[in-house]
């Protein structure tokens, strides 16, 4: 049986399919409950109760919302570019799921263990902007277009500093493989020596996922709902879920790069690796929600200033510093594989 799965093409395809399923189903459930968690956390911050009617403690709320979305009518505006209009939410959601192919949940548990895993993730996350631009353009609406333009500029800006932060992490690892990145943190998680970069990275992920306080692409008080103003029903739901799936993805990336992936703190192993990994993702997600509940939205010029004039020089400077320290102390990792 094991032979069939590991050594024949059909078996390998079935095996990969099952692996992907085993990852995607929990991921989608997590995304569904993240919407619930967001409403509960916001409610707690604002001294409300949040959803508590559908199911015990409102636990069935995400499914009620999903049903509502499914039974709504999909409206395509008259002047819209039909193909691109429908394609855009699919791109957004598909990319958010696609990136999970390389995330290692435990030692060697990634579906694809590729040598350039971190570059793959960076590539996929930099593609996320297309869903938004295409949606904004295809809607043929000025508000949607304004949202799309904002988003394009914002995501391209913050990607730059994110890239430099990743490079300083990679300098300490000596490999682009996500598995190696986590294993390199056996002694110390990278958020301790690279703490400023951890902060820069986290804030950049907020901007990259268009989350508050950088949610200008959808700034509802200025441009109605930004790039998805014309969307309804399942197309809207896909954008909505795509945003949350991206949050989960970015939390996973933060966990892998800075919080030691599946490794327990202080070398603890009394919980299995995947549990640690999920707990760390939950922590990052909670901070996402906490930030949303706490901070007002940035003004656009301040957003650009922060990206280009603060984060870019800071991450570049820190990169040089990291390289210098590694060289001076002889801690440069040996590149073998």
């Amino acid at each position: 049986m094991a032979d069939f799965f590991l050594h024949t093409i059909v078996g390998l395809i079935i095996l990969t399919f099952l692996k992907a399923l085993a990852l995607i189903v929990p991921l989608l459930i997590l995304v569904a409950y993240l919407t619930y968690a967001e409403r509960k956390v916001l409610a707690a911050v604002q001294l409300r109760k949040g959803p508590n009617v559908v199911g015990w403690f409102g636990l069935l709320q995400p499914f009620a919302d999903a049903l509502k979305m499914i039974f709504k009518e999909t409206i395509i505006p008259a002047g819209a570019n039909r193909v691109l209009f429908v394609l855009a939410p699919m791109i957004t959601f598909g990319l958010a799921i696609l990136a999970w192919a390389v995330i290692p949940v435990n030692d060697g548990w990634g579906i694809a263990d590729i040598n350039v895993g971190i570059l793959y993730l960076f590539a996929i996350s930099s593609l996320g902007v297309y869903g938004i631009i295409i949606a904004g353009w295809a809607s043929n609406s000025k508000y949607a277009f304004l949202g799309a333009l904002r988003s394009a500029a914002q995501m391209v800006s913050y990607e730059v500093s994110m890239g430099f932060v990743m490079v300083s992490v990679l300098l300490c690892v000596g490999s682009l493989n996500l598995n190696d990145i986590v294993l390199a943190q056996k002694n110390i998680w990278f958020f301790i020596p690279l703490f400023p970069m951890f902060i820069v990275f986290f804030i950049s992920t907020l901007a990259e996922t268009n989350r508050s306080p950088f949610d200008l692409p959808e700034g509802e008080s200025e441009i109605v709902a930004g790039f998805f103003v014309e969307y309804s029903a399942m197309a809207f739901a896909l954008f909505y879920l795509g945003e949350y799936a991206n949050m989960v993805l970015m939390s996973a990336l933060t966990t892998i790069l800075f919080l030691g992936g599946w490794l327990g703190p202080f070398g603890w192993t009394w919980l299995p690796g995947p549990i640690w990994f999920i707990l760390k993702i939950f922590f990052c997600l909670f901070v996402f929600l906490w930030v949303r509940a706490t901070f007002p939205r940035y003004r656009y010029d301040q957003l650009m200033r922060l990206g280009w004039k603060v984060f870019l020089p800071a991450s570049l400077g820190w990169l040089v510093l990291t390289a210098g320290v590694l060289l001076a102390t002889g801690w440069v990792p040996h590149v073998s594989s």
Partner: peptide
């Protein structure tokens, strides 16, 4: 694989976005 990823990151992720813009 490195060139493939860099092609996507640089051309698709950055250049083409500005182009589309």
């Amino acid at each position: 694989e490195f060139l493939a990823m860099i092609l996507v990151i640089v051309y698709v992720g950055a250049v083409a976005v500005l182009f589309l813009f």
